[in-house]
Simulated scan of single mutants.
Amino acid sequence: MTRAHAGEAPLAWAAAHTPTALWNDSADPEELRRSIALGAVGATCNPVIALAAIRAHPDVWTPRLRALAAEHPTWGESALGWAAVEALSIDAAKLLEPAFAESGGRNGRLSIQTDPRLHRDVDALVEQAVAFARLAENIIVKIPATASGIAAMEEAAYRGVSINATLSFTVPQAIAVGEALERALDRRAADGLPDREFGHVVTIMGGRLDDWLKVWAARNRILTRPGTLDWAGVAALKQAYRVFRERGFRSRVLSAAFRTHLQWSELVGGDLVVSPPFDWQDRIDASRIPVAVRIDEPVDAGILDELLALSEFRRAYDVDGMAPEEFADFGAARHTLRQFLDADAQLDALVRDILVPAP
Rank of each mutant, 00 (worst) to 15 (best):
M1E: 10
H17A: 11
N24C: 15
P29Y: 12
E30G: 08
V41F: 02
L51C: 02
L51T: 05
H57T: 12
V60K: 13
W61Q: 12
P63Y: 12
L65W: 02
A67M: 13
A70E: 15
W75F: 14
E77P: 07
S89A: 14
D91Y: 00
F100V: 01
S103F: 09
R106F: 00
Q113V: 12
T114R: 13
A131Y: 11
F132T: 01
I143H: 08
T146E: 13
R159D: 02
V177K: 04
R183K: 13
R196F: 12
H200Q: 05
H200T: 04
L213T: 08
N220R: 15
R225H: 10
V234D: 01
A236M: 02
Q239L: 00
Q239F: 04
Y241R: 08
F244S: 03
F244V: 07
G248A: 06
S251Q: 01
S251F: 04
S251D: 03
H261E: 14
S275M: 15
F278A: 09
R294K: 07
E297S: 07
E297G: 00
G302K: 09
G302F: 03
I303V: 15
D305E: 13
S311C: 05
E312I: 00
Y317N: 06
D318L: 14
D318G: 04
F330W: 10
Q339C: 05
A345F: 05
Q346I: 01
D353M: 07
D353R: 15
I354F: 06
L355W: 05
